[in-house]
Design a protein around this nucleic acid. Structure first.
Length: 266
DNA sequence: GCGACAG
DNA sequence: ATCTTGTCGC
């Protein structure tokens, strides 16, 4: 598929935060979104080494020098990476996308992309780290998913603009975030029964839902990304996770990204 | 001021 | 995120 970046890539944490603040108003949290999607895609990113890179979280200093990571020219049919080769402080990454038939949960198409991180891991600015390689993998996709399930938060974010929202605004597709641990917003544990849920609250605002996809296992945290409502998002997450804690989409995307990373010849 | 902090 | 052995259970 094809899309244009609605903004330049930030070089500092301050720029990244300003970008989130300006883009957050573009998020559509009410959807209602696809009621019966035909194709649901899961996305994930794998890291080499320990996943950490240079600049920790030192306040003030720029995250990383201007990086060329976000792919510039839309090469037609070339396994494009995020440019820049071995640069100090940059970690090799691989993205995996699995497009499944929403009803049978069978794989319809897969795509991967490899590259290097263009931003350090900073809680709240997670998207700037994974988006570049994820977008490369999305560009390699032939089919257009009806819903994107992301590994991380949607509006359950300090500025209401987590990875799922960012990906939704860029692609224009409905998205939802499925996080393994809570971030912004707290909730009480839902009953130990598949399908049980409790609201995630940040003050008096509902930012997501803690959803039990399987009894006896920790619940996941679902939040709206873009062009879908919370009920619809949770319904699809539950349907995509018939047996394990995480949706099949995410599980398969995780495997794809790890395999792609291993094939990238470390 | 101190701790916490999606992956 | 990633590094890892053993262990409990279907």
């Amino acid at each position: 598929m094809h899309f244009e970046l609605p903004h330049d890539w930030p070089a500092t944490e301050a720029e990244a935060i300003a970008l989130q603040v300006s883009l957050a108003p573009m998020v559509d949290r009410t959807g209602p979104g696809p009621q019966e999607p035909r194709l649901i895609a899961g996305l994930d990113v794998a890291y080499a080494g320990d996943g950490r890179d240079g600049t920790p979280t030192t306040a003030g200093s720029p995250p990383l020098p201007p990086s060329p990571s976000p792919s510039l020219p839309p090469s037609p049919a070339a396994p494009m990476a995020s440019a820049a080769p071995t640069a100090p402080g940059r970690v090799r990454v691989a993205a995996g996308i699995a497009v499944l038939d929403a009803r049978s949960l069978e794989v319809v198409e897969t795509a991967t992309a490899v590259g290097f991180t263009a931003f350090p891991y900073v809680s709240g600015l997670f998207a700037f780290r994974e988006l570049p390689v994820l977008l490369d993998a999305l560009r390699a996709l032939r089919t257009v998913p009806d819903l994107l399930l992301c590994d991380g938060q949607g509006v359950a974010h300090p500025r209401r603009f987590g990875l799922a929202c960012h990906l939704g605004v860029i692609t224009g597709l409905p998205t939802a975030g499925v996080a393994k641990t809570p971030f912004t917003g707290s909730s009480v544990l839902p009953a130990d029964e598949r399908g049980a849920w409790t609201p995630m609250l940040d003050g008096d605002e509902v930012v997501g839902r803690t959803l039990r996809t399987r009894a006896g296992v920790k619940p996941v945290h679902v939040s709206v990304g873009h062009r879908i409502d919370l009920d619809t998002a949770c319904r699809h997450v539950l349907a995509a996770a018939p047996r394990y804690r995480l949706p099949e989409t995410t599980r398969i995307a995780d495997r794809l990204s790890r395999d792609a990373l291993a094939s990238a010849i470390p």
